[in-house]
């Protein structure tokens, strides 16, 4: 439908100005309406979820789902956080995410530095190996991964999760870092070599600080992936005490089937950290999401 509106908007730019400017205005209004409707569709389910999280069961099952909560039930959040055990899942998610992000950034930076700054024969091949790993469907590796972790006693151990997150995020991390490293001037590093600096000092004291902007973009993207990850935790972890929020939420819903308010509260708790980060760093996140996809 929109192409037609686009047409009406500016085809008749030629004579009768009064008539065309009216048409143009109507066209503009329609364009904005389209964009606003899309925005509402994207936002309303989340607003509805927030309302749901503040309702009692009587309101959920006895009244219109469009109705606002009459007396906001903040207790739903307290129930989910403590009685539902969400606090434990939440803390697990926080520390798995942080540790895995740090590891991925360090290992990814090492590789990118070695590939873009150092001279060695196999670097093209090794880089290709990292990049191609991005194309391999995770599910085609899952059963052997399970078996490997089982053999080294890492099933139901947070290490299996942290190692998996680190490894599977390396390809995209290197992909994003690579573009930045290639655009970075080498003169400072070359001068440092002349001065007799060691490679380690160059890497840690010159290169790493220079890549801080792209490192923060990559860190946020990694953080989102890890926070939202489901299948590794669902497969490798069986004890409640080691589960993350994403898997924990799923279990919670299974246990409290009819308590929609508490389910809503749990879901809000699980998505809130990401939404808060997005509120402050939306440009970085958009940039990172776009960079990771199109280069592949």
């Amino acid at each position: 439908m929109n192409p037609n509106e686009l047409t009406t908007k500016s085809t008749k730019l030629t004579p009768k100005t009064g008539y065309t400017s009216l048409l143009k205005k109507i066209g503009m209004v329609i364009l904005y309406l389209v964009l606003i409707v899309v925005a509402l569709v994207q936002l309303y389910p989340l607003i509805w979820l927030f309302q749901l999280s503040l309702k009692t069961n009587q309101e959920v099952f006895g009244m219109s789902p469009f109705a606002l909560p009459q007396d906001p039930q903040w207790d739903n959040y307290i129930d989910a956080w403590t009685t539902g055990g969400i606090n434990n899942y939440f803390l697990n998610s926080v520390w798995y995410t942080i540790v895995a992000v740090i590891l991925t950034l360090i290992l990814g930076s090492f590789v990118t530095f070695a590939v873009t700054r150092m001279e060695w024969k196999l670097k093209g091949f090794v880089l290709a190996l990292f990049m191609a790993a991005y194309m391999i469907p995770l599910h085609s590796t899952l059963i052997p991964l399970f078996n490997i972790f089982n053999k080294v006693n890492l099933i139901d151990n947070p290490l299996s999760i942290i190692i998996s997150y680190t490894t599977f995020n390396l390809p995209i991390t290197i992909m994003i870092l690579l573009g930045f490293y290639q655009s970075l001037p080498r003169e400072i590093e070359e001068a440092a070599v002349m001065d007799g600096c060691s490679v380690h000092r160059i890497f840690f004291q010159i290169t790493i600080p220079m890549t801080a902007p792209v490192l923060s973009t990559t860190a946020i993207i990694n953080m989102i992936y890890n926070w939202n990850e489901f299948v590794f935790v669902n497969t490798f972890i069986s004890s409640e005490k080691w589960k993350t929020i994403t898997v924990g939420v799923n279990n919670f819903v299974g246990q409290y089937l009819t308590d929609w308010g508490a389910i809503g509260a749990t879901l809000v708790i699980s998505i809130l950290p990401i939404l808060l980060v997005y509120l402050f760093l939306s440009d970085r996140i958009i940039e990172g999401l776009a960079a990771g996809s199109v280069k592949g």
Partner: peptide, 19 residues
Amino acid sequence: YVLPALFLVLFLIYIPMIL
């Protein structure tokens, strides 16, 4: 610099893929 990451990617992505 390269081997730790390469080790992870080989043992947790490529070898499982073949396995």
